[in-house]
């Protein structure tokens, strides 16, 4: 965390994002919300949970729920392979939460002028979770709105 602070002070308003692959697209996750990235491990199913929760895992003695970001976005679940990772998020005072992504690619730095607002022409499930589009060396990165992802509209 200290390293990140040091970098942000040097680069002004720039923020670091971890670029992950989900399906064929690239998504960026604000690094300040990421606690850890772990390999796929055995997940215990929780009966009657929301459909997009795969279950819970044991992360060094702590029990954390794990969500399939694919299912959350209405995509088909993919086979887990060697590239599959669980990204552990720590969002303010709510507990930890894992999200399963197909692959973790790299870390990029984006300043405010490299991010476009995202205005979806077609409202689909995927669009609800995107906060903006980042441009980095000719590639487009959809920045995930983590609050929208954890915010459970159908729940309770």
């Amino acid at each position: 965390m200290a390293g990140e602070n040091a970098l942000t002070t040097i680069d002004g308003d720039k923020k670091q994002y971890i670029v992950v692959k989900i399906g064929s697209e690239q998504y960026g996750i604000d690094i300040s919300y990421i606690d850890n990235i772990v390999r796929m491990q055995s997940i215990t199913r929780v009966p009657k949970a929301q459909e997009y929760f795969n279950g819970i895992i044991n992360l060094r003695g702590e029990v954390l729920p794990v969500m399939s970001i694919r299912k959350r976005m209405g995509l088909q679940e993919d086979e887990f392979n060697n590239n599959t990772r669980i990204i552990i998020l720590k969002i303010e005072d709510r507990g930890g939460l894992g999200i399963i992504v197909d692959q973790v690619k790299e870390v990029v730095e984006l300043g405010p002028n490299e991010i476009d607002n995202y205005s979806p022409e077609t409202k689909d499930e995927r669009g609800d979770f995107i906060r903006g589009i980042g441009k980095n060396n000719n590639q487009l990165i959809s920045l995930l709105d983590l609050y929208a992802i954890i915010d459970d509209k159908e729940g309770m």
Binding site: V46, P47, K48, F53, V63, P65, L97, I150
Partner: peptide, 13 residues
């Protein structure tokens, strides 16, 4: 251990 408040379970667990 608590499972956190993300997962809605139906109190059976």
């Amino acid at each position: 251990k608590s499972m956190g408040d993300y997962i809605n379970n139906n109190k059976m667990i």
